[in-house]
């Protein structure tokens, strides 16, 4: 419990900053919708005239940008990037901080098992992620309900927004396993930025060139907005991949960290 509270305190400030900037970002971007939707109907017509191969290649086959949720879904990618970086930072940082700050020997000689240490740290990080998501969800619902003249489905809005949580979980556990495997991480940000942006660019390229296989590598389109809007559901195979990945990563972290040779100097 002590460790849990201490970690929460350590990450309080960064969680507040991340949450505020993510909310500010979506509020700002959504307020551009009205000026954007003026062009909307004209565009809509044109889109249907595109050859199908072209539509697919551009990745805009069904994402209806003229609707509130379509536009939100497009912007959501940027929210995902921010969220992924936050989660990855947490994941990479929370265990490796002890070695980096040379506090590992202090912590590990305390009468607690390593498993317990991992559990409290995991829970603390999870709490930060959950807080971010809850606040984000509330902010988005308030912001979008301010558009009175547009119709949208609340269920879909929540489903899209909730995928932020899943993406964060994936990146968090990826970061966590990396921090356990790598002997010593000198600086968190290059690792997490590199991986998140690598995945993002991979996904952007993948959808621009219409390559479906890339989807399995980069989590950014595991929860495809187009698919959610169309089917009111998440895609089952990607859902399974995510769950399996998160579980494997966390279990492996427990096993590996219990045996890890901790660098105390």
């Amino acid at each position: 419990m002590n460790m849990y509270l201490h970690e929460l305190k350590v990450y309080r400030k960064s969680t507040i900053i991340w949450t505020c900037s993510i909310i500010a970002l979506i509020v700002l971007m959504m307020s551009l919708f009205t000026s954007f939707s003026k062009d909307a109907e004209l565009v809509q017509e044109m889109m249907h005239n595109f050859p199908e191969a072209m539509q697919k290649a551009l990745g805009l086959s069904t994402l209806d940008m003229t609707s509130l949720l379509g536009y939100y879904g497009y912007l959501f990618t940027f929210i995902l990037i921010c969220g992924a970086i936050q989660a990855m930072n947490l994941g990479v940082g929370i265990l490796s901080a002890e070695v980096r700050e040379k506090t590992a020997d202090f912590l590990l000689v305390k009468p607690v098992t390593r498993k317990k240490i991992i559990t409290s740290k995991l829970l603390a990080a999870l709490t930060c992620v959950v807080i971010t998501n809850v606040l984000y969800l509330v902010a988005v619902i308030i912001r979008i309900s301010a558009f009175k003249s547009y119709e949208y489905s609340m269920k879909l809005l929540i489903m899209i927004s909730l995928s932020l949580f899943f993406i964060q979980l994936i990146f968090f556990s990826l970061g966590f396993i990396i921090s356990v495997v790598v002997r010593k991480i000198k600086s968190v940000l290059p690792v997490s930025l590199g991986i998140v942006f690598g995945m993002y660019i991979l996904n952007a390229l993948g959808s621009a060139i219409g390559d479906e296989k890339i989807r399995y590598i980069s989590p950014f389109r595991y929860f495809d907005v187009t698919y959610i809007l169309e089917n009111e559901a998440y895609e089952v195979p990607f859902m399974i991949i995510s769950i399996v990945f998160v579980i494997i990563a966390i279990v492996a972290s427990y096993i590996l960290y219990s045996k890890k040779d901790i660098n105390a100097f």
Partner: peptide, 8 residues
């Protein structure tokens, strides 16, 4: 295409 659309 209108400009806003191309921009996005």
């Amino acid at each position: 295409l209108p400009d806003a659309m191309k921009g996005i």
